[in-house]
Amino acid sequence: MTKIVEVGPAGYMPTSAPAMGVELAPEGSALLYGNTVTPEEAMRDAAIALLTRKNPTIFPGPQVLWDWKEDVAEKSAAILELASEIPNCKIIPMPDYRPKYPKIDVKAEINPNHPNLTILDNRIEACIFVGVHCHYANLTLRMVRAGTNCYTVALCAYMGHEEAMASIRDLHASDIAKFKEIVIEERNKLGIKWETTLPPENPSLPKEDNSTLSPADYGEYRSLIMTKKGEHITDSE
């Protein structure tokens, strides 16, 4: 198989996969390195990458992180079951799409505007994007391919993604379960010992302690900004 879309880094300003001639896989098929293959073939290659490359990570997006739709519960359960079969897999969410100012907490989240910060900082070499809206997924996947050596898997509820090394389209919870079975099969083939274990919780930075701040820190209009619970604001005029 000629690999049209390969693991990066592809360089400063890579040609997009569609511009290299990659077309989305038709219904019932998947994409592997830009080639149309069976979903199983793509899943198998992806499974091996997740099992053999460093720091495998699942990046769940808003469509599976938030409880807005019927199928979220089933899908999120399936994703966690999959994660628990990948040795030392982490879960780093992409809860929204706005750029993070002034600074992203790279251990706690990933963002489509600067995804490489999270991937490089955590030395992630294989990852799965799932539940990310297609536009943002495409942007992210291209930037990851441009600047990192991360193998990307896209699990997409719609038509999939040309930029991912492995792309599965029309994703249902049952497809995630099937992927999990393939991961277990390949893991056994590779002789990797692993007990089903859920990934660790989110390591968000501890909440800032504002209690040490004094109103003096806020200058003339301190009372307007730093009102504390129970503190009564009288007219400032």
Partner: peptide, 22 residues
């Protein structure tokens, strides 16, 4: 539709943490 924190078309400004690549 999630996400809640959405500016769908964020103005892109280069910073230490963001390049024009987006």
């Amino acid at each position: 539709t999630p996400p809640a924190r959405i500016q769908r078309d964020a103005p892109v400004q280069k910073s230490n943490f963001m390049s024009y690549l987006i």
